[in-house]
């Protein structure tokens, strides 16, 4: 592979503030997607022993510090990107993540409470959840989905990577 091409891909990913997709890189560089994919694969390998690794997140790629050095980096940064969410908020997020698109009423029913609207608003403000249209039933309630930022903050490339119930260890009946 052309060393400069790989370096350009590296530069693009480094300069972005959020994960960049192979499609986007290919478009910018007017290059073949397969070529970009190969460059990304090589970069990933190159970075394995480094303090910075290349992560597959939210449909794209992003440079982040290696998880191995978390304690030391935290010492310098004072805080990581941890969300301070209540148990109820995590349950609500789990329902949206695993059962999307879903309405506010459906979430409330699953949690056995009357309303989850304030939790949903909070999750929206944190950009973890977004409104994705309306359900075609009486009242046309809004449907909620997770966002790319959700995938990023939970270390996922796509929703397909959400662990299944078998993987978690709950028996599906």
């Amino acid at each position: 592979m052309d060393g400069d091409f790989k370096a350009t891909v590296e530069a693009l990913i480094f300069a972005a503030d959020s994960p960049v997709s192979v499609e986007k890189i290919a478009k910018i560089l007017e290059a073949d997607m397969e070529l970009v994919r190969a460059a990304v694969a090589e970069l990933t390998t190159d970075y394995v022993p480094r303090g910075i690794n290349l992560f597959e997140l939210a449909g794209g790629y992003r440079f982040l510090t290696s998880r191995r050095f978390y304690p030391m980096v935290l010492k310098m940064k004072d805080t990581d990107r941890s969300l301070s969410l209540s148990q109820a908020a995590f349950e609500t997020l789990a329902i949206v993540a695993y059962r999307q698109p879903v309405t506010s009423q459906e979430i409330a029913a699953m949690r056995g409470v009357q309303s989850v609207s304030s939790i949903l608003r909070n999750l929206q403000t944190l950009e973890l959840v977004r409104i994705a249209g309306r359900k075609d039933v009486i009242g046309r309630p809004m449907l909620y989905r997770t966002t790319p930022k959700f995938l990023e903050l939970f270390g996922l490339y796509s929703l397909d990577e959400l662990p299944s119930l078998e993987e978690i260890g709950v028996n599906e009946l």
Partner: peptide, 28 residues
């Protein structure tokens, strides 16, 4: 409802685990 809820609790715990692991790396 209870069985569904039990799954949600497990999934919420799993999300928490994923999140805790994901924030161990820092962006630029």
């Amino acid at each position: 409802q209870l069985e569904e809820y039990e799954k949600i609790v497990a999934q919420a715990a799993e999300l928490q685990k994923l999140h805790r692991e994901a924030v161990r790396s820092f962006p630029r």
